[in-house]
Amino acid sequence: MPYYVMMFLWGIVCLILQSTLFSQLMIASVKPDLLLILIIFNCFFQGPYKGCAFGFFLGLLEDLYLGSYIGMNALTKALTSLVGGWLLKGAFREKLLVPVLALFLGSIFNGTLIIFLGHIIGLNWDWNLFYWKVLPMAIYNTCLVPFIYSSFYHWVEQDIKQQSL
């Protein structure tokens, strides 16, 4: 199955899991942003531009699903992928530390952007949200990386091999 079809399906799965299973697995009243994990992993292998497009697309899907502030997640996820893709160019992706750090910083960047955008459109959001939501979510996301990354990595490597055959 083509890579992006697969990724799209994974995106849907993440969206569903996030609103169902992980609502039961909230820690410190936050749940992980699975879509963000998927998007950052994607820009590891696809670079900033494709990553940005995919981030935008999945972010938009999430926004449409949520129904309000359409474009907020699209924007933040696209920007996060773009910046992440640039910074991770040539990073050594076989090491687990790289995605762990990338996810942590990416989550913080993404969360900060959301608060920033919220401020711009006049939402009554406090910067304390950074401590109560962004930081715990970044830690939660980072903790999930070791469980997901190696399967994702092997899957992408296989996919690339198959396509090159």
Partner: peptide, 22 residues
């Protein structure tokens, strides 16, 4: 990005309606 931002501002009004695609 500009259009995304615009849409976000529009859909942020209180009387939001779910867009057909959504």
């Amino acid at each position: 990005f500009y259009f995304a931002f615009k849409i976000m501002v529009i859909t942020s009004r209180e009387e939001t309606t779910v867009l057909p695609l959504g």
